[in-house]
Nucleic acid binder design. Structure first.
Lengths: 119, 119
DNA sequence: TTATCATATGAGCAGATGTTCATATGTTAA
DNA sequence: TTAACATATGAACATCTGCTCATATGATAA
């Protein structure tokens, strides 16, 4: 029998009614999973730095790498992650590819994060 | 000589002036790093689920584990991460330890995340 | 005290993640 | 077309992360 813990707990003390009530109010598994995936994207300092640069200006990969003192390859890999998550979009201009913020949730989310830290 | 990429780029095309301007506007390295660390905490589905439970009610470790069908140990480890990041606080009540949300930035941050996803 | 319940924690392991390196793709100019 | 620049990408590797298992700590009741 799997998940013995749950069984054992119920015998003793777990408030089965409370647990059931809370379970019903939780969002879909998928939604919570996707949310975690989104925050995972914010959870890397290279990507955060990229976003801060994009707060200031649209910019090409090469300049971005220079801003952060990192290799073009490393930046490019991370830009892809940001793009798949729709936090960033890109357009081609001649030989360069210019990246920019996809929408304003990014600013809000990061803003709230900063507020939390300032305490 | 290290970081050849930057050097090479400058010879050719990088907009040194633009790069310098952006660099000046960026927050402190530490702040960006801390921000990434904060979001890293949100970037795991177990922790996200814990937070959603805490949106509904204060709850003990045992009930929390039952809600998520996970072991007490796994939950306890993650609660520690959440506590160190000040997203969650705890109080003892008899044999149990009751966890609750530390403040309301958590709701706001997660709310913005959800908005971003709904698109 | 001792027994039991509730939670916390350390070690170990498997899987995920970010960077580097080499190279491929795509664009422009000659 | 070819050469040079700009970006993207795959593989490899080292590090990080989250879970499990065993066990320690803490609290209560008998």
């Amino acid at each position: 029998m799997a998940l013995n813990d749950v069984e054992i707990c119920e015998i003793h003390e777990v408030h089965a009614d409370k647990v059931k009530m809370v379970k019903n109010k939780l969002p879909e598994e998928d939604e919570m999973y996707d949310l975690a995936e989104l925050f995972k994207v914010f959870g890397d300092s290279t990507r955060i730095k990229i976003l801060f640069v994009l707060f200031e200006t649209d910019i090409c990969v090469c300049d971005l790498a220079a801003c952060l003192n990192m290799t073009q390859s490393a930046i490019s890999h991370q830009l892809k992650v940001l793009k798949v998550s729709k936090l960033v979009k890109s357009r081609r201009e001649g030989k360069s590819v210019i990246y920019s913020l996809a929408d304003d949730h990014v600013r809000t989310i990061i803003g709230q994060g900063r507020e939390h830290i300032e305490e």
